[in-house]
Amino acid sequence: MNKTFLKISTIALAPLLLLSACGDSKSSKDPMVVEPPAPTPVNYSYQVTVTNLTHAQPMSPVAVVLHNEGSLWQIGEAASGALEVMAEGGDNTQVLAQDMVLAGESGAGLLMPGMHESIDVTLTDTMPMMLSVATMLVNTNDAFTGVSAMDISNLMAGESISFTARSYDAGTEFNTETAASIPGPASGGAGEGYNEARDDIADHVTMHPGVVSSDDGLSTSALSAGHKFDNPTLRITIARTE
């Protein structure tokens, strides 16, 4: 950004220098210093409204990210460490702190089933090409939902786009559904969230198969039928406000 500013100011000054060189000798000894007007900052602002569509899966504070490169996840690729931390334990701080993030905001707290929340995010002087959203389904081992690297470059101010998102499995923790491994309220909050060990079937992000629950045949599960979910799990509306 600083570089760009430098370039613009050099270009703006060039004609002035030229002018003073062509002027008479008196004024050329004492050139007038002209301060170029500071460019007005241009804001690219988006309001992202998320709605939890599940029956009983609270979602961890929602991360909203503007970026021009990279992605939060890709099907078939191993999850990043930052995504793993969020998908297993609901902590989005590492997701928001990634190098690719140009602007990032977090939801205020847990997004409860049926509830919605609007999160504002703004980037100044650089138009963002992509927007990503991520949140954990907290009554699971490593399920999350959201959208990765959505192209928003054609979204004009005043326009909005709305769609639903499915659930993904981070591929970093086997879906045991035990109380010891579920951080959400289904385990009384006693379960472990993030653990760096990766013990899933395969270390790849995939679609989530859904939870089994003790009511549906997994005797060691801390979940009941009420924790089951189907796709989609999250509604996302992106409105560009300026």
């Binding site: 499915r166 559904e177 679609m207 198969p209 859904g210 549906d216 045949g217 997994l218 796709n231």
Partner: peptide
């Protein structure tokens, strides 16, 4: 459906591995 019994139960499939949600 699957089940959690590797040597019996109703199904030979594993309910934590062989279920899916669409799309596939």
């Amino acid at each position: 459906l699957g089940d959690d019994d590797a040597t019996g139960g109703k199904s030979d499939l594993n309910n934590t591995v062989h279920r899916w949600l669409n799309p596939v």
